[in-house]
Nucleic acid binder design. Structure first.
Lengths: 355, 355
DNA sequence: AAATTTAATGGAAGCGCTTCCAATTGAGGG
DNA sequence: CCCTCAATTGGAAGCGCTTCCATTAAATTT
């Protein structure tokens, strides 16, 4: 009935802690799980024993006993049926997987084609088959209110990454203030003397990317500049879409002096096109992106971009999910965490226009 | 004594399988673990029941019962104390973490500064503190024979990723045939008519990168070409080192017509320099790299490179590690797995020299 | 100070699996 | 056809933890 191992060459167990702190196993468990009804003195005694023995809970035993599967899933979107090859996705995945390992959870990563008509069913089905305790959604799934509602009905807790304003009313989320980021980036370029802008947007169901555009527009309005809609294009976040859309901009004789793209890959594509057409960056046009993936430092010239800590964002999302799964959801309304961004100014926007 | 759940709304357990297939729990366990002494007919009956019930073992229960900690670690190197921001590292990490989750292992990722004089102690210390069952080493740790020997003494099983010829004698490893890859890539360029070559190497303690150079040299010799040592430089795998070393090449009036770099980031840096000096790629010089990270498609022109499936390599390394941890090491000599590579021919080497 | 109520605490029963070991079966030998 | 030995099989004891529930100690109320 008691699995203390007095002096044996094994990891200490909860019973070793109980014995050393002279309390029952149950009390130790309470302390470890921040349970109620433990006197401070006892709590301290237990914690001291934990420290002295260098005790760490056995997560497998814990999950077995508690009956929680401790399995969660991360859903990433891909246009193709193959795995997306972007650093954005990798960073999110690493952040989530690392935090899960730390918390003793198993995380499974799924790629779902967001263009498949049955993608919602696919997600629900994967949850059912694998019996996930909860899931993390990335854009555009994190903006899909119908999906979110179905998940709620099925009692599958979900946390969104970079959910937009609407979805945030229905789902816990973690992300930066994309609208503010768009505003600040634009403001910076305006301060550098730019008055005419082009913008290559992302996919329209990614609300966070749309918010970047909203912030961009607000900055123009606030600074008394007008937007030429002819220089706003719809891309899909890929390098290729950056190439193609920027060509339309560059081929125009009187193109704007500044181009903002919804993400770094798109901006890298624009840079690619500029090279091909022999348009000098930043002298003839400045280009900026979002995300600060490694791409931004491996293009010429290095790309000005908005840094958002993707690994940290994913880690926070997992923390929130696990917290809800373990302690229940105390809040009635969704919890939305806003993570700070900062603008990395590099050479792609180095030119300042004299007024 | 029996935890079958007849019809309850829960995942099936081993006892459900036992009941359905009319054998004891122990026999089911044997079948699931490929144990000996089970008649084929019985084995089949059990497997049928598994399929019918959609049974999947509960990994936490299994690891609890078997008494294995099921925690392993991945060690990545970084020159800095901060986290490396390369896709190479990310891909390895994702491959390892995913496979661990699948196998019910917890994987922890550590960054160790390989230039710190005490890096070996640091790794050993981390293993001791965390009581890892085994570890995965990436270059240059996977080539460090002293480290490998210390680990063996401490009875910490390790698997190396891309270990070189020497280390492979002492450690299980997974990687491609880097020498052959270097040979084939060079051969390809020779077939395109190139006769004069430059090479930017990686760090010298990364044996896999050195092997790429060895293969390069052999291809030259085999084809009767001689190597001009003045065009061989030592880099450190970074974009920046690609910029700097390639400048030395490009500034020479009679530079070679082909440049091979030890990895993609270096090659991207060389491309960057070529742009800056207005040297046309591939017309004036062709450039190629190794690894096929996303970088290679986000530079101009797209980079010819050797694709190695990094996620798969890491996954295999984890599989091997787990297999040894669970079944013991039956082999007396280390097991070295060679994974296929293939050459991605892109525009950076598109020019063919007329003979 | 006795009677209640409430906060703390610990005993014991599993969670789903592996594994030791005893029991059973089947073959082959005499 | 009985005996011996190896090949199969299953019973039962945990692995280290959570949690139900009973018990005890402390705090409040009469």
């Amino acid at each position: 009935m008691n699995n203390a191992n007095n002096g044996a060459n094994k990891n200490p167990t909860i019973d070793d802690v109980a014995a050393l702190s002279k309390v029952g196993r149950t009390t130790v468990s309470r302390v470890l799980n921040n349970g109620p009804n433990v006197r401070d003195a006892v709590r301290k005694r237990v914690m001291d024993a934990v420290k002295q023995l260098n005790y760490r809970v056995n997560v497998q035993a814990r999950s077995l006993a508690s009956g929680k599967s401790r399995q969660i899933a991360l859903f990433n979107a891909s246009d193709f049926d193959s795995e997306p090859n972007s650093y954005y996705t990798s960073a999110i995945e690493i952040g989530a997987l690392r935090k899960c390992a730390e918390l003793g959870f198993q995380a499974f990563s799924h790629i779902v084609n967001q263009n498949s008509p049955s993608y919602r069913n696919r997600i629900i089905e994967l949850c059912a088959i694998n019996n996930y305790q909860g899931i993390i959604l990335t854009p555009p799934f994190s903006d899909d209110v119908s999906l979110i509602n179905i998940l709620r009905e099925k009692n599958i807790h979900a946390v969104g990454i970079s959910s937009g304003n609407i979805a945030r009313k229905y789902i816990d989320s973690v992300g930066m203030d994309d609208e503010l980021a768009g505003y600040r980036l634009t403001e910076l370029l305006i301060k550098n003397g730019h008055k005419s802008f082009a913008f290559i947007k992302g996919l329209e169901n990614h609300m966070s990317a749309e918010l970047r555009f909203e912030g961009f527009k607000k900055a123009l309005v606030y600074n008394g500049l007008k937007l030429d809609e002819n220089f706003v294009f719809r891309g899909n976040f890929t390098f290729k879409s950056g190439i193609e859309n920027s060509l339309k901009i560059f081929e125009s004789p009187n193109h704007p002096s500044a181009l903002i793209c919804a993400n770094d890959d798109t901006a890298a594509g624009a840079l690619f096109s500029a090279h091909r057409l022999n348009i000098k960056v930043p002298e003839e046009i400045v280009i900026a992106g979002f995300d600060d993936t490694p791409v931004s430092e491996i293009v010429w010239p290095p790309l000005t971009t908005v840094h958002q800590p993707l690994k940290q964002i994913a880690a926070r999302a997992v923390e929130r999910l696990v917290s809800v799964l373990q302690n229940g959801n105390s809040d009635s309304s969704p919890k939305n965490m806003i993570i700070d961004f900062n603008i990395m100014v590099r050479q792609s926007t180095a030119s300042v226009i004299e007024v």
